[in-house]
Amino acid sequence: MIAPAGVRALAVVSLLAISALAGCGRGDDAKKDGARGDARTVAKTSARERAERRGYDGAPPVIPHQNFGVECMSCHNDRGMQVEGVGFAPPMPHAVTAGLSDIARCRQCHVFRETDEIFVASDFRGLAQDLRRGRRLNDMTPPVIPHPVFMRENCYACHAGPAAREEIRCSHPERARCQQCHVEENATDLFTP
């Protein structure tokens, strides 16, 4: 898909920001910030914490912040938004999915956590996120997309911008047509007769 101009600009800017900061020796300070572990910042969330928000890889995450009583998309808009005291609210990965239009109900799938208690313990073990890199034919070829693209059409939501995690951060977000080089791995035939 072609990313909206806003998302492209944001991705480029975040790259600029990184190089600018790296160039002026802020790297150590940044490390210190990380060690201090400000719990309110979303982008500092570890892979483990992120995984715990999901029942399994592919399940919609529960909402990690409190209910601010505002429309979800006032922060999770098409560029994402830095929210004072909270962190970066990434854009929606599925802005263009059929059935999920601008007026769709986010909380049909994403719910708040009202308690940490559970009703009954569970033996459920969900599919864990595979943090290995996508499979490649050889070192020179671009990796395939290891997850379904359905409902994750906006690659930038997770792979670029301030909230993108190190392990899946794209090195070349300025090349806007991701699926020109990365294709969906499609090895999931149903075992129906």
Binding site: A17, I18, D33
Partner: peptide, 8 residues
């Protein structure tokens, strides 16, 4: 967006 950098 210091938070974004910290991720590195």
């Amino acid at each position: 967006t210091g938070t974004g950098i910290v991720a590195f």
